[in-house]
């Protein structure tokens, strides 16, 4: 594990840049993460996705299925890839401060 500075605060990240201290996440952290994910500057759709992921995670302690994300935000997968080149799991989830997806996903 390594520490890095995001949004002006020190946060622990894993080998692939996912933050390990979700409680430290805030908008500034998200913006700094979006720079690493080539998703900067973040527009309305970026935030729509990030906020949806964030809310779902706080409620269910897990990221939502990708199809649920697409359906609920109304943003299709292709656009998600344009917004977050790393894709919904590795890109958007990372910016939203979620842990890296695990299991056969």
């Amino acid at each position: 594990m390594a520490k890095t500075t995001l949004g002006g605060i020190e946060i622990e990240v894993d080998e692939d840049g996912f933050i390990q201290e979700p409680e430290k996440w805030n908008k500034e952290v998200a913006e700094d993460l979006s720079k690493l994910e080539q998703a900067f500057p973040m527009g309305e759709d970026h935030w729509k996705i990030v906020n949806y992921l964030r809310d779902y995670y706080l409620k269910y302690e897990i990221a939502p299925p990708i199809r649920m994300l697409v359906k609920q935000t109304g943003i299709d997968l292709k656009t998600i890839y344009q917004l977050f080149p790393g894709g919904p799991a590795k890109g958007a989830c990372k910016v939203a401060g979620l842990p890296k997806p695990t299991g056969c996903v």
């Binding site: 302690e61 897990i62 842990p99 695990t102 299991g103």
Partner: peptide
């Protein structure tokens, strides 16, 4: 409950 992290509520 699952290696994906899915708990019964999710």
């Amino acid at each position: 409950g699952s290696s994906t992290g899915i708990n019964p509520r999710a």
